[in-house]
Structure formats: C-alpha cells, structure tokens
Design a protein around this nucleic acid. Structure first.
Lengths: 103, 103
DNA sequence: TCATCATTTAGCAAATCAGCTAATGGAACA
DNA sequence: TGTTCCATTAGCTGATTTGCTAAATGATGA
C-alpha cells in the first residue's frame, strides 16, 4: 500500500529516522548494488544479526517509503525506491547550497 | 576539542544520528539562513522547548562535527560546518547515483 | 567580592529503539 | 491434509533518547 501522499515534512522525518541506523543504510546500499531488488532472505543472510531483527529493520525502511515490497510465491521481494531516497535527501541538502550572507 | 580525524564511517554514523531529530535539522537550517553563526541564546529562543533541552541538542550537533563552538565573553557562538554537512551527506548519497545493473 | 547574565551539567522519568527467542502466517508440494 | 520453507509478528529485556527541573559554571560589571 502506498502512503497516501505523506506530506513532505513527515516524509523527511521518516526518511531521516530510517537512515539513522547503520544496518538500514547498509541494506539500502546492498539493494542498490544488487540491482535494486532482493528477497528478504537474500538480504538477511548478509547481516550478522538474527532474521527477525533484520525483518524489523526492513519494515522500518518500508514505512519510510525507502523500499517497497512485493510478494513472489513464498518470498518477499524488497525494492529500493531510489528516487525517493535521492530526492528527499537531495532536496533537503539543497537548502544548504550556496552561501547565504557570505562574509 | 576537535575529534582527532574521526574516520569516515564513524563520522557518517554521527552525522546521520544527529540529523535524525527534527529540532536538530531545524537548528542547522536556522544557522544557515542567519549567516552560519549564532549564539546559543539566539538559537534557543527560536524553539519552544526549554533551554537545557536545546543546549543538549546543540552539544550533539557539536559532537557530530556539524557545528563548532567558540566563546565570546559569556556567550557561546555556534558555527555551522556547512562543508562537513554537504560533503558527508553528498558523498553518501553519491553511491546511489547512476543505475547499477539496469535490467 | 557579590550579583548577574548566558549557558551548561546533573539527574530523573517517560518513551522509543534494538536485540533476542518463541510462536505464527501463508505459499508450495508430497 | 500435513509438512516444509520463507518470513513476519509477539513479547520480553536492556540501552538509548528526549524532555523536564534544579543546580552549577564561568565571564562581566557594580
């Protein structure tokens, strides 16, 4: 299910919170470098923590909108939402581009 | 005190953690749009939480390296470290630029 | 030196987070 | 239908975060 037009601030808040944990950032990178899609199992086996722990991190990522999920038989496939990531972070960062009131 | 050449991952970790709280992000923006430097008091009076609360957020920002402090008489002046912010975040984000393994 | 101003530190309580194990859900297949 | 496989949810615990109030610090000025 799509977050029903989560407003910008709320979205930023969730994205930033999701990015605060190193494991979640790592998941995003792994997803990216493996082509953007991986099953939960493929993701989980790359990390040293227990499966349910990874599973919860994945859910947080999903709730932030940074990944989406689809079912394929008994697997769940996680997809990186690359544009949401780069846009959300990029747009926020953009406020800081250019000197305001340069000395 | 300067963090003695904090390594990249540690740095990223602290920056991301610092950015996870909306008030801390807001402080950075306020600092930026006010020219990069403000006293603790000027910052604190712009937020609705109590002074000590803001003070602690400022310390977290300082520990992440995103701001630095200098004393000026009995005031403390906080300075936005704009390059650290844009470099740290920009470099991380850069991993996600360009399609890897497009289908 | 004593009071004052700007700000931080100490210390506490409530909320949230992150890890674990055990139990559950649901598709596939014998 | 029952078993197996992939993955999640439930529920617990300990650590961390965030807010508060009250006390402390440290520079300035009378």
């Amino acid at each position: 299910m799509d977050s029903p037009a989560l407003d910008g601030l709320e979205q930023l808040d969730r994205v930033m919170a999701a990015l605060a944990h190193p494991l979640r950032r790592q998941v995003l990178l792994v997803l990216h470098f493996r082509g953007g899609e991986m099953s939960a199992g493929d993701i989980a086996e790359r990390f040293s923590c227990k499966w349910p722990t990874t599973s919860r991190h994945l859910r947080q990522l999903e709730e932030s909108g940074l990944v989406s999920v689809k079912r394929d038989g008994r697997q769940r496939i996680y997809c990186l939402e690359r544009e949401l990531l780069t846009n959300t972070l990029g747009n926020w960062l953009h406020w800081f581009k250019g000197n305001v009131k340069p000395k």
